[in-house]
Write a protein that binds this DNA or RNA. Structure first.
Length: 523
DNA sequence: TATCCAGAGA
């Protein structure tokens, strides 16, 4: 009987051990640890294989408490001299506790293999100690392709492409990760053409290579090239879909992002591909760009169905979404419930308040943000200035605009200028608005001139209106709205000839006359 | 039979 029980318990030990390892292999770290804890409580003795997996899960989940208690247990059982346990502990401490402790554990290992060496090499590189890492690399008794890849990517990430390429050329053996490190390095320093050149030379591209290039094009704003690569891919994994959806969402093409998401959803319905936090983060951003509250709410329900929990990224995406859709109360709830309020979540809230005319809330949040020692950025000031504009608080707006560079070292962008022009314009201070445009250190964009034009329409100023309109025509020749505005200014001033002439110019230039016809009737 | 390298978000 007792042998039966012990056989039974050893078989459950085996199966739970197998399940724990499989959870870890598939990235289900939380499940792995809770299974480990429950099987441990029921008296299972864990072997070094299972503990290795558990330590890895602790590292991934930043569970310092359980990880270090596993370390103590392993020490007691004499397992800590095992090369697998030792190596996973080095990885664990390098992730959670920094290089010193990791190095200490590494030095105390009685046996090391190439993976142990790679782990300590990666630990130095992760913390940015390039020279110490190189020392480890040169001292290593054996190196495999991963050792070389780590060092190459370390140089590339540090921007030292020269050293990266020297090492890359010396490699006795290369795999796709080696190439990807260099490609990534070129992208990081803005040399997308170099990256593409290398990408085209690759014989065996991995999905990582494709995704790296797609996100490179995203960063350089080349949506067409990104899409062209995406279309050429034979096998698309979750990362590939996410990269392309993100590309659209970040390039101001939210409809395309959602369209692609719907295509991806068909694969989900067939049980092939499940959207994850990253997917939703981009999709929510697309929804907030469109101000599409209904679709966003549907997305929230879909996430609930998939049991996707809000992390800080997603929470901020939702704050931005609700704020931009006018649901400031819901945005505030999420913001207040957030465990760490950072620059982005504060800025999203301030922007939301600004857009929804809650000037005093925006100002209050800004003060609180400074109290929390968070340094404001360009987006923060866009929100704050928008709040002043909405409330028509000119003097406060001027003070804020002056202070952003003087006190916070944030240089005003075209958009900031455009908001100020709008603010002056709305209250009829047209000359100041015009002077502000003339004082811009950069080429004024159509937003600034457009704001002035709108103000001239509002206050019936023909002279400035003409100047503003002609700049708009130059900067955005295809848009008919500016012509309509100028025509309205003429019409209201009774200058029918000019209005008529303007319509002729539109026809000559082939500008669409299909919208805003109210003015044409005057001519 | 495990441990290490390359891809992502507001």
């Amino acid at each position: 009987m007792s042998s039966f029980i012990s056989a039974l318990s050893s078989s459950t030990e085996k199966s739970s051990g197998l399940a724990i390892r499989s959870h870890v292999q598939n990235g289900r770290f939380r499940e792995a640890l809770s299974l480990y804890i429950s099987s441990h409580k029921s008296g299972d003795r864990s072997d070094n294989i299972v503990v290795t997996a558990a330590i890895k899960a602790c590292a991934q989940l930043s569970n310092m408490y359980l990880g270090s208690s596993l370390h103590t247990q392993m020490y007691k059982h004499g397992y800590s001299s095992d090369v697998y346990v030792g190596t996973s502990l080095v990885g664990f401490y390098s992730r959670l506790d920094g290089i010193q402790i990791a190095r200490k554990v590494f030095d105390e290992m009685p046996v090391r293999n190439v993976v142990s060496w790679n782990t300590i090499l990666a630990a130095y590189l992760k913390d940015g100690f390039l020279e110490s890492a190189r020392k480890v690399f040169d001292e290593m008794p054996i190196r495999d392709v991963i050792s070389w890849n780590s060092m190459v990517s370390g140089y590339a990430k540090a921007g030292d492409m020269e050293s990266a390429i020297i090492l890359f050329r010396e490699m006795p053996e290369k795999n796709p990760a080696s190439w990807n490190s260099i490609i990534c390095g070129w992208i990081d320093c803005g040399k997308i053409a170099f990256a593409r050149d290398l990408f085209d030379q690759m014989h065996q591209k991995s999905t990582v290579s494709w995704v790296t290039m797609i996100s490179g094009y995203t960063r350089s704003g080349d949506v067409d090239s990104a899409k062209s690569l995406f279309d050429q891919m034979d096998e698309r994994d979750l990362f590939s879909w996410n990269a392309m959806i993100t590309c659209y969402a970040q390039s101001g093409q939210p409809r395309e992002a959602i369209e692609l998401f719907n295509q991806m959803r068909k694969l989900y319905i067939n049980g092939h591909l499940y959207p994850d936090k990253m997917t939703f983060s981009s999709i929510i951003s697309a929804c907030s760009q469109l101000g599409d509250l209904r679709f966003g709410l549907w997305i929230e329900g879909f996430m609930r169905d998939l049991q996707i929990e809000l992390d800080e990224h997603l929470r901020t995406a939702f704050i931005d979404f609700y704020a931009k859709c006018g649901s400031i109360e819901r945005a505030s709830e999420l913001f207040i419930g957030s465990s760490k309020r950072d620059l982005v979540s504060y800025s999203a809230m301030i922007l939301g308040c600004g857009m929804n005319g809650k000037a005093s809330d925006a100002i209050h949040l800004f003060d609180k943000m400074l109290d929390d020692d968070i340094v404001p950025n360009s987006v923060t000031f866009t929100g704050l200035l928008a709040a002043y504009r909405h409330a028509g608080l000119v003097e406060e707006g001027i003070r804020c605009f002056t202070s952003m560079w003087r006190d916070h070292k944030v240089a005003p962008s075209c958009n900031h200028y455009a908001i100020m022009v709008d603010l002056f314009g709305r209250v009829g201070r047209l000359d100041e608005a015009y002077r502000l445009i003339k004082s811009m250190p950069m080429q004024p964009h159509v937003g600034a001139w457009g704001a002035l034009l709108l103000a001239c329409r509002l206050h019936g100023n023909v002279k400035l209106g003409e100047i503003a309109a002609h700049n708009c025509f130059k900067l955005d020749p295809k848009a008919s709205g500016y012509y309509v505005l100028l025509a309205n200014i003429y019409a209201e001033a009774g200058e029918w000839d000019k209005a008529k002439r303007l319509r002729e110019v539109m026809t000559e230039k082939g500008v669409s006359t299909s919208i805003g016809f109210s003015w044409v009737e005057f001519g």
